[in-house]
């Protein structure tokens, strides 16, 4: 990719002037956001505020209408040529996507594969990793998320919290530069939320993983987030250190949201 223009500032994730429409409905308005390497940024806001959509633009699960998204200095999903963005062919888009891991609200584990197969499948199939080594790495990741010994189980035999931890291991197995979390605990029974947040906290604090997290867990955002970004109606309303945004919000909209959430 010699014609690829490098992003000079080079934060790990760089979202510049991104707009997005669904038909005539603009869901993202001129979004600017930079995430530094190793940083954990929590996106919070009411449902429909565009935070999940923004997250999905970072690995090109959603197309953007205008602007650009850069990961580690390279454009995501597009190629810049003569000042215009050209959408990448599928194979090229896939290659870039490998650098971004994603954890979904509903886990989306592959039900026809065992836990170990779920984690080692993509490294073997997409990255052509050696089978034995990929399985070995998968085992070490499962141990890291506290699921050693469950390699042979099928997803349906696990609790929601365990499934989500497998999903985190599955994303990590691709050795991504960035991890995206799309409301990872929203579909869990309340008593299972803690185990998933503990794994994420471990990744953020001791793993040095760059993380972008859409969440309603204000406790997690406060404790683990390096920065909190509050979104509403497709715009970033305010951002800053968790203590400032959550403790002393400046905007009316943020205050209203937080008082409703932190009742």
């Amino acid at each position: 990719m010699n014609d690829q223009i490098q992003d000079p500032a080079r934060p790990m994730v760089h979202i510049q002037h991104v707009d997005k429409w669904y038909g005539n409905n603009q869901v993202l308005h001129d979004i600017d956001l930079a995430v530094e390497e190793g940083e954990t940024v929590c996106l919070v806001g009411p449902s429909g505020s565009g935070k999940s959509t923004l997250l999905r633009c970072v690995n090109h699960l959603e197309e953007i209408g205008a602007g650009s998204v850069w990961v580690d200095g390279e454009l995501v999903g597009y190629r810049l040529r003569n000042g215009r963005l050209h959408e990448l062919r599928e194979a090229d888009a896939c290659r870039k996507r490998v650098e971004v891991g994603m954890v979904f609200q509903h886990f989306n584990l592959f039900p026809h594969m065992t836990v170990l197969e779920n984690v080692s499948f993509a490294p073997i199939t997409v990255k052509n990793e050696n089978k034995a080594e990929a399985r070995e790495y998968a085992r070490s990741l499962l141990e890291r998320v506290g699921l050693a010994g469950r390699e042979g189980a099928y997803p349906s035999q696990l609790s929601g919290g365990q499934q989500q931890r497998v999903a985190i291991a599955r994303a990590l197995a691709m050795r991504p530069k960035v991890m995206l979390f799309d409301e990872p605990t929203s579909a869990l029974d309340p008593e299972l939320v803690g185990e998933v947040l503990a794994v994420m906290k471990d990744l953020a604090l001791t793993g040095g993983v760059t993380m972008l997290v859409v969440t309603h867990e204000m406790g997690f955002a406060r404790e683990v987030g390096d920065r909190v970004v509050f979104m509403d109606a497709g715009r970033i309303v305010e951002q800053g250190p968790p203590a400032q945004v959550l403790g002393d919000p400046q905007h009316e909209r943020t205050k209203a949201f937080l008082s409703a959430v932190l009742r």
Binding site: N59, L61, M102, F104, L109, F110, T125, K127, M174
Partner: peptide, 20 residues
Amino acid sequence: GQREAAKALGLTSSRTLRFI
């Protein structure tokens, strides 16, 4: 969700069809 998870892992649509 299954297709999206496969896509997010970098699978092409033909591989997604075949393996997932």
